[in-house]
């Protein structure tokens, strides 16, 4: 795009706008500094602050507990990655099953609906107990007893029920005319689903999926109730040994650090989606 010729009046306007922008930036900066300063002073000058700093922000304890918490966090990350892949596969399968048309698929649809009802409804921690302690209690040959495998299974069951509903909302949001147009071009049901409906549906639900992913990042730690030592449990152990809450703060900061890239990715995906749809509208 070439820069159009700018009149003197327009240049004045631009200069005025720049001045206004600088002024707002300055005000914002000063206001932020004053607010942060007041907050800092209010916390650090409170009568209990030395004790709180000792109990929650103790650098020595933080350093001592960090290796163990990182070891736990590595377990969280591994479970997270495996679980997320399985969740997307199972969730998409359940969602597609729920949208199958035709009376012959009634039992499958009912099964898929029952699945989402059951596993969205049951509290995750109870499902973890049932699967993590109940399944190995059967003492069947070939059934895994590893708490990590069983815990991941429970996470997948619960989260894929949520994710299936997100996918289904995405599929339903694709206008029926798209499907009709695909079929009129001679595509089969499967082809129209795969080539026309799902690409649009998945793109549309990417932001809520990333939202669920961030929630999962923290919930994978719940497998610690089965005996595995994740970051939060490692912090709990360190905290009990040192009589100090700093390990919790360390684990909390690590989780925040883990969530930030996902949050930025969600923002970026949403912005890109908006650009695409706006662009289509403008053209």
């Amino acid at each position: 795009m070439s820069q159009p010729a700018v009149s003197a009046i327009e240049r004045d306007r631009q200069a005025y706008r720049r001045a206004q922008a600088r002024r707002s930036t300055a005000i914002a900066a000063i206001s932020t500094v004053v607010f942060a300063g007041a907050l800092f002073l209010a916390v650090t000058r409170s009568p209990g602050w030395p004790r709180v700093r000792q109990q929650f922000f103790n650098l020595e304890v933080a350093g001592d507990s960090l290796p163990r918490i990182l070891e736990g966090l590595w377990l969280n990350i591994r479970v997270l990655v495996v679980a997320e892949v399985l969740i997307l596969i199972v969730g998409l399968a359940v969602a597609v099953t729920r949208t199958l048309r035709g009376p012959i698929f009634v039992p499958l649809r009912a099964l898929a609906a029952g699945y989402t009802d059951l596993f969205r409804g049951i509290p995750l921690i109870i499902l973890l107990y049932l699967i993590g302690f109940g399944v190995p209690g059967l003492r069947l040959q070939g059934v895994p007893t590893s708490v990590v495998v069983l815990g991941t299974t429970a996470m997948v069951l619960t989260y894929s029920a949520y994710v299936a509903e997100v996918f289904r909302a995405g599929i339903d949001s694709v206008h029926p005319s798209q499907r009709a147009a695909a079929r009129s071009l001679g595509l089969t049901y499967r082809q129209s689903m795969r080539l026309v409906v799902l690409p649009q549906a998945v793109r549309r639900v990417a932001p809520p999926l990333l939202n669920d992913f961030v929630a999962l990042q923290k919930d994978v730690g719940l497998i610690s109730v089965l005996g595995a030592v994740d970051a939060v449990r490692a912090a709990q152990i360190e905290s009990a040994e040192s009589f100090n809450f700093t390990p919790y703060v360390v684990a909390g900061l690590l989780f925040v650090a883990l969530a930030i890239p996902t949050a930025r990715a969600a923002d970026w995906t949403a912005a890109r989606l908006e650009r695409r749809e706006r662009a289509a509208g403008v053209l």
């Binding site: 302690f133 209690g137 007893t145 089965l226 005996g227």
Partner: peptide, 12 residues
């Protein structure tokens, strides 16, 4: 209680 269940299950 959780630990006892794990012992019965043979997980520990």
């Amino acid at each position: 209680d959780d630990a006892k269940q794990a012992l019965i299950n043979g997980q520990i």
